[in-house]
Simulated assay, not measured.
Amino acid sequence: MQLIIGGAFSGKRSTVRALHSEELSWVSAYDERSLNDWKLQWESDTSLVLEGWEKWIMKALLSEQNDDTIRQFFYLFFSELKEEEQKRGEEIILIMLELGRGIVPIDKQERRLRDIAGWVSQDAAKLADEVYYVWHGLNEQLK
């Protein structure tokens, strides 16, 4: 599993395309895709790209009050993805938006999103085989 993380419009998608010349199955929350769509959208002989995590996390925030439960859900989800990646022999790429830099939001729900997104990205980085940080169109491999 590979994690590509960086700020908004920092070049994360371009980095994915530069690192992966093969065909990609793309599941994006920005296209109103559900997190569970990956099962139907992942075509054989392609790598799977999942992006829009902050939207999927926000959806979880609206339905669950316990932050630890949300974090546990995403950790288990990443573990499931890793298992499927090994079964298929195809790579999974997670594109995550870095929300931890900049001004801390005044709104309680936005701060909660920022906190949980940070924990989820830490868990993704822990489980990922490779981690790239992207900023201003440049990427640096951290792991």
Rank of each mutant, 00 (worst) to 15 (best):
M1H: 03
Q2K: 15
Q2P: 02
L3A: 06
I4H: 04
I4Q: 05
G6V: 12
G6C: 11
G7N: 13
G7R: 11
G7K: 12
F9I: 02
S10N: 09
G11K: 06
G11Q: 08
K12I: 05
R13H: 05
S14M: 08
S14H: 08
T15S: 15
V16W: 08
A18R: 14
L19M: 06
H20P: 05
S21V: 00
S21L: 01
E22W: 02
E22I: 02
E23A: 14
E23I: 00
E23D: 13
L24P: 08
S25C: 07
S25R: 12
W26G: 04
V27S: 10
Y30W: 10
Y30F: 10
Y30L: 08
Y30M: 06
E32F: 12
R33F: 11
R33I: 00
S34L: 05
S34M: 06
S34Q: 07
L35R: 09
N36R: 11
L40T: 10
L40R: 10
Q41D: 15
E43L: 14
D45R: 14
D45Q: 14
T46M: 07
S47M: 02
V49M: 05
L50M: 11
E51D: 12
W53R: 02
K55W: 05
I57C: 07
I57K: 06
A60I: 04
L61M: 05
L61K: 05
L62A: 07
Q65A: 12
Q65C: 01
N66C: 03
D68V: 09
F74A: 03
F74P: 06
F74C: 04
Y75I: 12
Y75R: 15
L76Q: 09
F77T: 01
F78Q: 04
F78P: 06
E80N: 04
E80R: 06
E80G: 01
E83R: 10
E84C: 02
E84K: 07
E85K: 01
E85F: 00
Q86C: 07
Q86Y: 06
R88V: 06
E91P: 10
I92F: 00
I93M: 03
L97R: 09
G100W: 03
G100F: 01
R101D: 11
G102N: 09
G102V: 13
I103M: 13
V104W: 04
P105N: 02
I106V: 15
R111W: 11
R112S: 10
R114A: 11
R114C: 13
R114V: 14
W119A: 12
V120F: 01
V120T: 04
S121Q: 12
S121N: 10
S121F: 00
Q122T: 09
Q122E: 14
D123I: 11
D123E: 13
A125Y: 01
E130T: 13
V131H: 02
V131K: 06
Y132F: 15
V134E: 05
W135H: 13
W135T: 09
E140G: 10
Q141E: 15
L142I: 15
L142G: 03
K143T: 08
